[in-house]
Amino acid sequence: MLFTPDISQWDCDTQDNPGLDQWSCDTLPNFLDFYSVAPATTYAINPDIGPLFDGVSYWVNVEIVSIYYDNINCRLYLGTGQSEVFSTVGTHRLQVTADFSTDQNIRIGNEPDSLGAGGVKLIGVELVNIRELILADIETALTGLSITGSNVFRNRTRPHGATPALNINFNQDEPDYELGKMDSAPMQRLEVTIQAIAKGSSQSELNAIASEVEVAMYTDQTFGGKSVGIERGTISPGSDNEGDEKIQALDINYEIFYRTAEGAPDIVI
């Protein structure tokens, strides 16, 4: 399900609303008002955006058009569910799990001590399923490791240039009804292979990469509450000796367990 409301002209501006740490909100999550750059004018976001659901994770695309002051730190809130901090001009793709139990507003709020952004556009809200969120979390967890650094890829289609690198591949997602809650909420078994690839390296370096991957994967094996837990599976080597340097690889397999109800693949139980 994808919500892409035509709201590109709707802006928020703390500059014109001094004293509001969190601002530009109406009451219902499916019909929102945002203050615009022009003072005292409000715009309703296209109602096609909603409704948004409690407990569901969304990608929200937000654009900061300009920044009036330095030291700005913003968060996007869906109720009390909050995104990571974003602070620079440009488009930000934020992951937020909606929590409208005590607060039904959508807000872009300043962190304390921040003064404010200029025009802020809410570009779109996209529902993402749990599998996608977990895979994105894996990518985040594996990015910046000391050996592989930022060479972390999902859905790569062309050969690698820089190595060592990591590929993240989703193999299959299989429901297990015997491990589920009653019959309608099976345990989902998400199988992911992380491939460590290194050119001109020793086997010991690849094993070191596998260790770093495992530490990162188990740092939060619930992925922020989305999964029940993970299990590491087999690690198997591969190599190619034909080129100017030996190329070695490890397939590192993981299973991630999470529960969803039949017919509701986007809501974690």
């Binding site: 790569r156 289609t157 062309r158 050969p159 690698h160 240039g161 190595t163 590929n167 591949n169 491939q195 690839i197 050119k199 591969g238 190599s239 190619d240 034909e242 080129g243 100017d244 340097e245 190329i247 070695q248 690889a249 397939d251």
Partner: peptide, 20 residues
Amino acid sequence: ESPYYEGDPGTFVGVRTSTP
């Protein structure tokens, strides 16, 4: 000579290299 070669260590995508 050192022509382009796509190394294949068994991964989903290969690695850019050459065969000198």
